[in-house]
Nucleic acid binder design. Structure first.
Lengths: 210, 210
DNA sequence: GAAAAATTTAACCGGATGGTTAAACCCGTG
DNA sequence: CACGGGTTTAACCATCCGGTTAAATTTTTC
């Protein structure tokens, strides 16, 4: 199993508070708001319910903090790379590597974000939305330039970005479904996902040939 | 908003039982086992809790029936197309059209399947798994033949299938996330998803050029 | 119109769960 | 040692929720 990265809130690295928060992070991300139980979080942090409420007043508040931490870690990483000062080809190359690694380390995060937005749209769009969403305009311009120069086949920049994202994220997120659809063992799937980076890059660059 | 297709169990089309089942289908698929409340299902079906239990004994049983219906409708449709007797290029073409339509009509279904498997793996793999999972071997053979004939660039059949699936499914499932990442309004996103079929097909066939 | 089935009403039970409380305990620091 | 914050224990409350029940009411069917 992959370990989930536990985010660093501005706290002492190994304080009880941090351990509780990490436990909450893990449980919430895997089970969602409804599926997560406070007792389970306490158990997972190696403490008891009383202390849990001593540090974090309510489930709602704790969830809100976790959810904020999740998206405030997920989006800026993408943004940084997508805004970087780097040739398009290199940017795509690094993006695929980076993103597949990122999602592999946090396979439940995309599902968590999408699922919770679906289940509790109000709270999410009120409380959790990031202050600064990614701005892919620069990437779009780079694609348009490359098209204009004839370096790549004409293509909609938006669709290209979504294609890249899809091929990186979906197989990891949909892992249990792929096992069924493709009839692969867990072993085979691990091997398959390891090959992905190179396969995805090859596919993208093949599709971009003029 | 897209309407979700409500599956036809072998029941009278407009019976109370069917109305309840449809309501349960909708609520379960959107909110999952934990998030769905029996009262909500009853409300949604326009009846009361007592009658709900009169028709369907327990939440578990009802959920099991709904989950079975969901996957027994989702997978055979794919399988049929993927096993069809049809040239590879045409098969891909139709598959993209068909699959984007299917997911657009049931945007919550993939998330539901993946999420529930993650949250309750035991029950799912015991009770719900389809008797006959898709067998993509034929598709794989077609790809290998096309490669051997030089009709398409060399490519791993498995990765090709996953790429196609990813680009079809992910954007629809991740719609709320895309809104944030790409900074698009709901209107723009609708337009974007309409363009998808042609863009995805163009992308795939471009990537397959020898 | 009577019998049977469908549906409502309303109350209730029991367990799980979020949350509280008070007392005791542990443990490091001044 | 005494003080105080961290921590445990254990009991407890309120609420929600799945599920049941019994009777009344409506609708269907014969």
């Amino acid at each position: 199993m992959d370990n989930s990265e536990t985010p660093t809130t501005p706290e002492l690295p190994d304080s009880t508070e941090q351990r509780i928060f990490d436990a909450a992070h893990q449980v919430f991300v895997q089970k969602g708001l409804d599926g997560a139980k406070m007792q389970e979080i306490a158990d997972h942090a190696g403490i008891n319910k009383a202390l849990l409420h001593y540090y974090f007043r309510t489930k709602e508040k704790l969830f809100e903090m976790v959810a904020k931490a999740v998206i405030n870690r997920a989006f800026p990483a993408v943004q940084q790379l997508i805004e970087a000062d780097m040739p398009l080809e290199q940017k795509i190359d690094r993006f695929v590597d980076f993103y597949i690694d990122l999602i592999s380390r946090n396979p439940f995060v995309p599902l968590f974000i999408i699922g919770e937005i679906n289940k509790h749209p109000d709270q999410f769009f009120e409380k959790i939305i990031p202050a600064a969403p990614p701005r892919p305009e620069r990437f779009f311009r780079q694609v348009e330039e490359a098209v204009a120069e004839g370096r790549i086949r004409p293509i909609s920049p938006r669709h290209l970005l979504v294609n890249v994202l899809s091929m990186c994220v979906f197989p990891i997120v949909a892992r249990p479904m792929l096992r069924i659809v493709m009839g692969m063992s867990s072993q085979e799937l691990n091997q398959f996902l390891k090959e992905r980076k190179e396969e995805v890059k090859a596919f993208i660059f093949a599709a971009l040939r003029p």
